[in-house]
Design a protein around this nucleic acid. Structure first.
Lengths: 212, 212
DNA sequence: CGTAATGTTGAGCGCATTCAAGCCGGGTGG
DNA sequence: CCACCCGGCTTGAATGCGCTCAACATTACG
């Protein structure tokens, strides 16, 4: 299959809302955010994608990309012409199944985000975000106790439906509760269990740990 | 293609979270809600589906359904064996494209819900919901000024990330503002433009119309 | 080294929630 | 047929979480 490499520098975009949809992209190194915008100008980070993950499924329906994909750090991607993928998947069953599963997976992942946005409080949202990040890093062989955030507080807040101050405050709360060490974008997880608990805890949360 | 009809009575489920994934479903008559649940028991309405729409894409990724689909009224569906769809779409290009587009469409639709949940205030959320409902009804040949809601305030609230009281209060506000007539589940839209404006209005909203 | 971008923290406010009480309307049984 | 009941809906009052606005600290970067 003919794939072409492409480098994208930090803050540059891989594709933009309205661009013709030609390729799906597989991230080889680096990371991206995808942003959607509403009619009246408000915009939102709809997801963060890291090494090994795919990008661009939103473009299929209208043959145009439906969001912006912006590199969070210098990155490299493989461009996979969707027409070729479709052709091939007519002959290669495994590929067809894989494409279906990737898209279905994206749908399910977004369900989870909706559940978070509709039901969770700030602490739970941030905990959910961090657990997800750590899990994905771990799956790629990184330690699960240390991570460097590639995105700003504002971007995290946008994704979580919070504003940047609330994100910052919540990080501080976690630090006071000795759940983690927070030095700007350098995070060290001290109490993984506490963090995991916080994800599926309907009430109380930090108050139970004596933090206000 | 071998499709089988199936009737589902109000409050019965078409499939449940954890069920083996076999079929996609096309709704012939009636309507459904899909519900997802988090580990700790909280659940949420992730979408409403009506006549002509498809159901079940979330099941592909794990070969099990990932949510509950519950009929909001007595309904009838076509069960479409996904294996057959996949087979056929290897030979029929148009079908392959259609499947891809339906899934991509679902992804984009969920982006919009995320944007709503993360950024909008109660009035805007409800307005967005009603406009979407009316548009879908209109596309099926119904009037765009009158509608009967098939779901409770609680279900609407769950979908919109609000509680039922807030939904009720917001309906009342719309009524006071003469934007619509609200009699329980019977809604008559009086001022479509005002409703549409409210969807993409970052601030002010009803206050601008003298309602508090 | 200086400047701009990013992050932290505080104070006050407002919107949606929570808790509570009452209302409506449709279905059932006496 | 009417009284009753119960689920769904409405409305009110008080609370609190996250937002806004503002000041300051820290870091990245030219």
């Amino acid at each position: 299959m003919i794939t072409t490499r492409r480098r994208v520098k930090r803050h540059e975009s891989l594709f933009r809302n309205g661009d013709n949809f030609i390729n799906l992209y597989a991230i080889r190194t680096g990371g991206f955010k995808t942003c959607i915008a509403s009619d009246d100008g408000r915009d939102q980070v709809s997801g963060f994608q890291m090494t090994g993950e795919m990008l661009g499924f939103d473009g299929i329906v209208n043959d145009r990309h439906n969001c912006d994909a912006v590199a969070l750090e210098d990155s490299e991607v493989c461009a996979l012409p969707f027409k070729r993928i479709a052709e091939l998947s007519r002959r290669v069953n495994a590929l067809q199944r894989h494409v279906h599963k990737m898209m279905s997976h994206e749908i399910v992942r977004e369900h989870d985000v909706m559940l978070m946005l509709a039901n969770m409080r700030a602490e739970e949202r941030l905990a959910t975000f961090l657990v997800s990040l750590v899990n994905r890093l771990q799956a790629r062989g990184f330690t699960r106790s240390k991570l460097i955030l590639r995105m700003t507080r504002e971007e995290i807040g946008s994704y979580l439906g919070l504003n940047l101050e609330t994100v910052s405050r919540t990080f501080s709360k976690f630090a006071v509760a000795s759940m983690m060490d927070v030095r700007q974008r350098h995070i060290r997880i001290l109490d993984t269990d506490a963090l995991r608990q916080m994800v599926s805890q309907s009430e109380g949360a930090l108050v139970n740990r004596g933090v206000h």
